[in-house]
């Protein structure tokens, strides 16, 4: 089975629902000494709730930058990002951190997990920021690990897991707080085809069965096929759209 065959694409989404992610005229300029690097240039994007959007584009085109802005890790140089009605630039760092805890699940390409904590403890980390008690947290962790099919690995440390399993634990951690959006930056970038397929199947299930809104950056055309929408970033602009 190729990843392609095992991962059918999700049904196309319509733009009727009110947008959950709204990017308006966003620019991002990095300063490296006297040099200004203009990464995003007046970018607009509007995503409805429940969408699975993939972002593709050449290296350095600003995919990670865009994802970081939507996930509240960075602030735009111009323009505004709002998620679920919240204008992120209006939040102070502490409030922004709290907002991330409540609304965003992050998955990055590599080294998502804290190496000295077991899979279950890693998944529990974001729950430490909630009001859940120990028992409720354990309950949530069990459910999240069940969803990603790693209940039997709860007590394993990251180094005892394969790359694909590590990413699935990271996904469990991203969804355990039931966030508004899930943001994944090349979640399969470092995986072999089979593990990548597992991870993509999982993300698609999250989108279809649990209605999660997912933004994913990928270089892999197969990966993009799972997504309902594919955006192409080039030279700081959203160049094409499917």
């Amino acid at each position: 089975m190729t990843p392609n065959a095992s991962v059918p694409s999700s049904p196309s989404q319509t733009g009727d629902a009110p947008p959950i992610v709204e990017v308006r005229g966003v620019s991002k300029v990095y300063h490296r000494g006297p040099v200004e690097i203009s990464v995003l240039r007046g970018l607009d994007l509007s995503l409805p709730r429940g969408v699975f959007a993939a972002f593709m584009g050449p290296s350095g085109s600003g995919k990670t930058t865009l994802l970081n802005l939507v996930g509240g890790l960075d602030v735009p140089s111009a323009g505004a990002v709002s998620v679920a009605g919240e204008i992120l630039a209006a939040l102070r760092p502490r409030a922004l951190a709290a907002w991330r805890a409540a609304h965003v699940g992050f998955i990055v390409q590599l080294y998502n997990l804290i190496p000295v904590l077991t899979a279950a403890d890693n998944v529990e980390l974001p729950l430490l920021l909630t009001h859940l008690n120990r028992k409720q947290r354990a309950e949530h962790v069990r459910t999240a690990l069940e969803v990603v099919g790693l209940s039997d690995r709860a007590g394993h440390y990251p180094r005892q897991l394969s790359g694909g399993q590590e990413q699935r634990v990271a996904i469990a951690r991203a969804i355990v707080t039931d966030p508004t959006i899930v943001v994944a930056d090349e979640p399969t970038g470092d995986l072999d085809a089979e593990s990548a397929a597992e991870v993509l199947t999982l993300l698609r299930r999250l989108n279809q069965e649990f209605g999660k809104t997912i933004l994913m950056v990928t270089h892999d055309p197969h990966a993009a096929e799972v997504a309902g929408r594919v955006y192409r970033l080039d030279k700081g602009r959203l160049a094409s759209e499917r």
């Binding site: 502490r94 951190a97 965003v104 997990l113 980390l125 974001p126 920021l129």
Partner: peptide
């Protein structure tokens, strides 16, 4: 440094 960044993505405040 990287782990600290990961904790921040999870919503852990700097403090």
């Amino acid at each position: 440094v990287r782990e600290v960044a990961v904790l921040k993505t999870l919503g852990f405040s700097s403090a």
